[in-house]
Amino acid sequence: MNPYLGGVLLGLVLILAFWVSGRGLGASGAVKSAVVAGVDLVAPGHAENTAYYKDYHESHPSPLKSWLVLEMLGVLVGGFLSGAIAGRLKFRVEKSPKITNKTRIIFAVIGGIFFGFGSQLGRGCTSGSALTGMAVLSLSGFLSMAAIFGTAFALAYFARKLWI
């Protein structure tokens, strides 16, 4: 699909989210809900004794029954549908031809750890903070966007082996 047309569609989805729910799109919050729910399940005692979990439960009575979790389940379905229509469903590792699958997976995990941590510190990821924040013209949205993309550009040279 033409990227500009795709961008217009993305903008319309975002507007719809605002019109229906008064909020934009998000992603990392859903993973956080899942993490909290997981800790509740595995170590309920620990969850009860840690301030962060307690605060979280106060604002989110049932972590998994939240807007973001359902939205992310939708993303799984929507992505799958699009992939199925275009014939892209396949288990595989995508990487630069110069590195092994193992290297790629290791760096994906490291990247994920950074992103997970950063999204919590920055109160939102590329969707929740940068995209949504920019759509409503919030200062934090532009700060996040500039910091994320600026850092990625600055580090791109050092990580070039991974991609080109």
Binding site: M72, G111, F114, F115, L121, I148
Partner: peptide, 27 residues
């Protein structure tokens, strides 16, 4: 600070949270 850390994660991991869920959905 969060943005800088996310930027590092982006270039190392190649995804952001939303896109990784989307990519995971096609395998």
């Amino acid at each position: 600070g969060g943005g800088v850390i996310m930027g590092a994660g982006f270039i190392l991991g190649g995804y952001c949270p939303g896109t990784s869920v989307c990519a995971a959905s096609i395998g």
